[in-house]
Structure formats: C-alpha cells, structure tokens
C-alpha cells in the first residue's frame, strides 16, 4: 500500500446512489429556478472603475491643444519597461517640446512612474482598459493619439489621504 493513504469509511446507510442522484437533481433544479443575479452583461453593463486604476496613457494638453510635455526626458529615464520613446525639439521661442513621443502599450507595465515623475503633470495613466486593436502597430500610441484620449486621469493617490493611511 502506498504511503500515507487514508481510507475513508463511508457510511453504508448514506450511500444510495439513486436517492443521492435524486437529491442532487433537486439541488440543481433549485439553481435552475433561481434567477441569475451575479452575471454582468459586459458590453452593456460595465465595471465602475476605481479612480486609482492604472490603464492606458493619456497626455494632458494646454487650452490651445498643445501637449503639456516639455520633453525633459524624465519619463523615458524612469520607465522600467523602457517603453517610452522621446525625441526632444526646440521651437522658435526656445521652448522645448516633444517632436516624437511614443508609448508602446504592449511593453508598458502600467507602474505609473512616468506620471509620478513628470514635472509638469503632462503624461498620465488613464482609468481605461478597453484597448483592443486590429494590429500590433496600433498599440504604439503617438503623441497625437495620447492627446486625443478623453478618459479620466488616474489618481496616483487619494487627495484626501495622500500617504494612504
């Protein structure tokens, strides 16, 4: 006999297969008759997302529609997944802006460091998860697309309780 095998003594009286089956069928029928309460009809009903949920990115814009990004280069530096591509440029007024700003959402691990490190609160994670696309290329979001997103910004902390106490 194999080591440590425990033999369970089953009570003789309680082992009628037919009656047990009938009992089980009663149970399943009760489930059949109970209305379904927990299923969520997804495309029609959606989750209420937490304000701190970290989803796909969104770039904050000035009132005239320009991205707030000043191309300081902190976010590609801090990004642990190395998913931000930034090429800085300078306009005629001597202000820096991002000539190329791309985020590869496939590489992104949604840690939120870019949002945390941004000195001008330009790049944000968003409260958003429905990111399906028809091609892999479409998952590299460029600056234009990041500015177009309109889902709410992720809150990295609760403003009333900044230290999470």
């Amino acid at each position: 006999m194999a080591i440590g095998v425990k033999k369970v003594e089953r009570p003789e009286a309680g082992s009628s297969y037919l009656r047990a089956t009938l009992k089980g069928m009663g149970l399943t029928f009760r489930h059949l008759a109970t209305p379904i309460t927990v299923s969520q009809q997804y495309p029609e009903e959606k989750w209420e997302l937490a304000p701190r949920m970290r989803g796909t990115h969104r770039m904050a814009v000035h009132e005239d529609g320009r991205a707030k990004c000043v191309a300081c280069g902190l976010c590609p530096t801090v990004c642990p997944a190395n998913c931000i591509k930034l090429v800085p440029a300078e306009d005629e007024n001597g202000e820096r802006y991002a000539a190329v700003y791309e985020i590869d959402e496939f590489r992104c691990i949604f840690c939120g460091y870019c949002q945390e490190v941004c000195p001008v609160e330009a790049i944000h994670l968003g409260v958003h998860y429905e990111a399906a696309e028809y091609s892999r290329e479409r998952f590299v979001y460029d600056l234009e697309r990041l500015c177009e997103q309109d889902h709410p910004f992720t809150q990295l902390w609760d403003p009333e309780d900044p230290a999470s106490e």
Binding site: R10, E12, A13, S15, S16, Y17, L18
Partner: peptide, 13 residues
C-alpha cells in the same frame, strides 16, 4: 427494494 435495500453501496459505490 432497489432504492432502499439494493442500492446501499451495492450498486455504484
């Protein structure tokens, strides 16, 4: 007989 005598661990268990 089947349900209360024969079926006590004699048929399936």
């Amino acid at each position: 007989g089947i349900m209360f005598w024969l079926d006590r661990s004699r048929i399936i268990v």
